[in-house]
Computed example of a mutant assay.
Amino acid sequence: MKLDKIEYIDRKTNMILVENVPGENFLKFLYHNPFGKLPLELLVKRKCLSSFYGKLMDQKKSINKIEDFVKNNHIDMNESQKKVGDFTSFNDFFYRKLKPNARKIEDGLVSPADGKAVGFEKINDWDKFFVKGSEFCLEKYLNNKELLEKYKGGSMIIVRLAPADYHRYHFPADGKIGSRNKIDGYYYSVSPYAIKENFGVFCENKRELTTLETSEYGDVLISEIGATMVGGIEQTYTPDTHVKKGEEKGYFTFGGSSVLLLFEKGKVMIDDDILKNTKNGYETKVYMGEKIGE
């Protein structure tokens, strides 16, 4: 299966839309052209390229990219605390903060980020969206046998942040948040161009794991995943404290990325439309604070 375009469901209209993908032709070359495999394995998946590009996005002259990026991706800057001319670098724009009322925090379990979501009632149902045989291994992803036993048979939601999305992530529920566990890895793309045929890249990429202890949903595992051109995963919360739903947890520096949520068996009911769209092969557009389960 080779994707020609990335389609997703707009939750508000239930319409199928096509995602605007920066660097689309390059992604297709890397992941769907035999000649793309060499640069992918030798350079693109490695930290050096993403770190180098991330540093370029920290430089003052990178502000010249902001205006065109906003225009080409139809970004609503009325939500931003800063205006286009106030940013000090492209990265400063990329992980911009929104105005306090830009996102409504709804009842129930909410999305930790703006992005496209897929949901699985049972973790091993992932092959209803991704191609069978692409070797996602929960044990390898968690790198911890105790966590494996805890979340085996549970539910999973993945929210994929495209480069045009708001790139701060937040807590999906009230609870007590623990300290982060970093797992080193590569920087493969998390675009559907890459992961539809190889969901296993999630097990290869750099990621962080944190447990949120909640009274409503059990222990929710929150995991941020790095990807190509993601310069870093920055946590802004204080470990071992009580947090409120919708409070900021951290942000990604330049690039696309994902937030993965794991739930213990029987603790969460993911919203029906997200499950249905996933089974039909579509991601669902969600916004931070929007209800995704109960």
Rank of each mutant, 00 (worst) to 15 (best):
M1P: 15
K2A: 14
K2F: 07
I6P: 12
E7S: 14
Y8T: 12
I9F: 04
T13N: 13
I16T: 15
L17S: 13
V21E: 13
P22K: 01
E24G: 02
N25V: 02
L27Y: 10
N33G: 11
G36W: 01
K37N: 00
P39R: 06
L40Y: 03
L42A: 05
L42T: 10
L42G: 00
V44L: 02
V44P: 13
K45V: 12
C48H: 14
K55H: 09
K61P: 09
S62M: 15
I66S: 12
E67A: 15
D68T: 14
F69E: 04
F69R: 03
H74T: 00
H74G: 03
I75D: 04
M77G: 07
N78S: 13
S80Y: 13
V84F: 08
G85T: 15
F87K: 03
F90T: 08
N91Y: 15
D92E: 15
F93G: 10
A102C: 06
R103W: 00
E106G: 01
G115L: 03
A117T: 13
G119H: 08
F120R: 04
K122V: 00
N124D: 12
V131P: 12
K132H: 08
G133Q: 14
E135R: 13
E135S: 11
L138R: 04
N143H: 07
E146F: 09
L147Y: 07
L147M: 06
E149K: 08
G153N: 07
G153P: 00
S155G: 05
I157M: 02
I157S: 00
I158E: 14
I158W: 10
L161P: 06
H167S: 01
F171M: 00
A173Q: 11
D174R: 03
K176Q: 11
K176C: 09
I177D: 04
K182M: 12
K182F: 04
D184T: 05
Y186Q: 07
S191C: 14
P192A: 09
I195T: 10
N198H: 08
N198R: 04
F199S: 07
G200M: 11
F202G: 05
E204K: 11
K206W: 10
K206V: 04
R207H: 02
L209E: 01
T211L: 13
L212F: 02
E213K: 09
E213V: 14
Y217I: 02
D219W: 01
S223W: 03
E224F: 01
I225G: 05
A227L: 06
M229V: 04
V230H: 10
G231M: 09
G231I: 07
I233E: 08
E234N: 14
Q235C: 09
T236I: 12
Y237C: 06
D240M: 01
D240Q: 11
H242K: 11
V243S: 06
K244C: 13
K244G: 04
G246Q: 06
E247F: 03
E248W: 02
E248D: 07
K249G: 01
Y251I: 06
Y251W: 13
T253L: 05
S257Q: 12
L260Q: 07
E264L: 15
K267R: 00
D271K: 10
D272C: 06
K276F: 12
N277I: 08
T278S: 08
T278K: 11
Y282K: 15
Y282H: 14
Y282C: 12
E283P: 08
V286E: 03
V286R: 06
M288K: 04
K291T: 00
